Amino acid sequence: MKMKNRVTEIFNIKVPFIQGPMNALTNPEFIAAVSEAGGLGIMGPNAGNAKVSRSPIETTERMRVEIKKIKQLTDKPFASTIMVSDDISYVTYIVDMLIEEQVPVVLINGLLDKALFDKLKSHQIKIIFRPLTPTIQNAQAAEQMGADVFVATGFDEGGTVPERVIGTFSIVPMIADAINIPVIAAGGIGDVRGVRAAIQLGAEGVYVGSLLIPTIENPAAENVKQYIVDSNAEDLILFRTLPAYYRSLPGKLAKELEAMDQEGASREEIAQHMGAGRNMRLGMVKGDTENGYVSVGTGISPIKEIRSVQAVIDDLMQDFVEYNSKNP
């Protein structure tokens, strides 16, 4: 198997491991740890902050502070998410700040806007494009607009699950056959076996979130980390909500949401009871797994202990590390 690929060359990283931003479940120390381990750490718009701000200016300036902290912790490449909002000022302020701070890579979630792509490309910023639901159409559109890599997310993922029930190992080859830029596999990657399978199916790297939550450096609550270690995919609860589906490990709120779904409540009603990011923060950062929820993907089964970020990346990327050691 040829281990050298375009992803490491595009982002100037050691191994093709992309960290999911996971919003409040990241902070500068965690992001820097990923980049120092050879992958690409990505900052979410609320990384490192205890409360979410609804002000585009305040959000942007908070992000600037966190970016400066990351730069103090690592000189390796990292990325930032561009928040997609109905308020276009969020995008405008954040993009201008990322250009000013010379952030080398951005993650765009679902916004196909040629002017935005052109602006970033004119400042030599690399673009990762990740739609909520990957399709051949949005993959080809992203490629035409200048995306450097495309994240193909399967139904196996944690967080906001795609609208179409297509697993990771079905979506990856479909997208890889449709575009020429590198494809990154996301959803359900739990160990090196998943990485090897994704590569064989046409991916050139992996995008990982849930596997990094039970790590020493992650800001998730310690009881949540242990809860993930002690659980497997059979334990997960799946329910409808806006915009599509969510899954969670069991807890009082998660069971209520499941019951509402089974009793025919609307997606809007379920979403209102779910409490969106507020209750995810309550569950995963504060550790209240009963009144909040713990959203993870189906790849948690192989997780057997709380490890360092370096250990997780070395495990998943062992083929690439071996290749690089033989081909310095």
Rank of each mutant, 00 (worst) to 15 (best):
K2F: 15
K2A: 14
I10W: 03
N12W: 01
N12V: 00
M22L: 15
T26G: 10
E29R: 14
I42R: 00
N46M: 10
R54C: 00
T59C: 13
Q72P: 05
T74I: 07
D75K: 11
M83Y: 03
S89E: 14
L98Y: 05
H123R: 15
F129E: 07
F129N: 01
R130L: 08
T135L: 11
Q137M: 12
A139R: 03
A141S: 12
A141I: 13
V151P: 01
T153K: 00
D156V: 08
E163F: 14
D177M: 12
I179A: 10
I179W: 01
I189T: 01
V192S: 07
R193D: 08
A197F: 06
A197M: 04
A198K: 03
Q200R: 10
L201S: 05
E204H: 00
V208N: 06
G209F: 01
A220C: 13
Y227L: 12
D235R: 11
D235S: 13
F239L: 04
F239Y: 15
T241D: 12
Y245N: 10
R247H: 11
L249G: 02
K255G: 03
E258W: 08
Q262C: 07
E263C: 03
A265H: 14
G275W: 07
A276V: 12
A276H: 11
M280V: 10
R281K: 13
L282Y: 04
G283H: 04
K286G: 10
T289C: 02
N291E: 15
G292I: 10
S301G: 08
I303D: 01
K304E: 15
I306H: 10
V309Y: 01
Q310R: 15
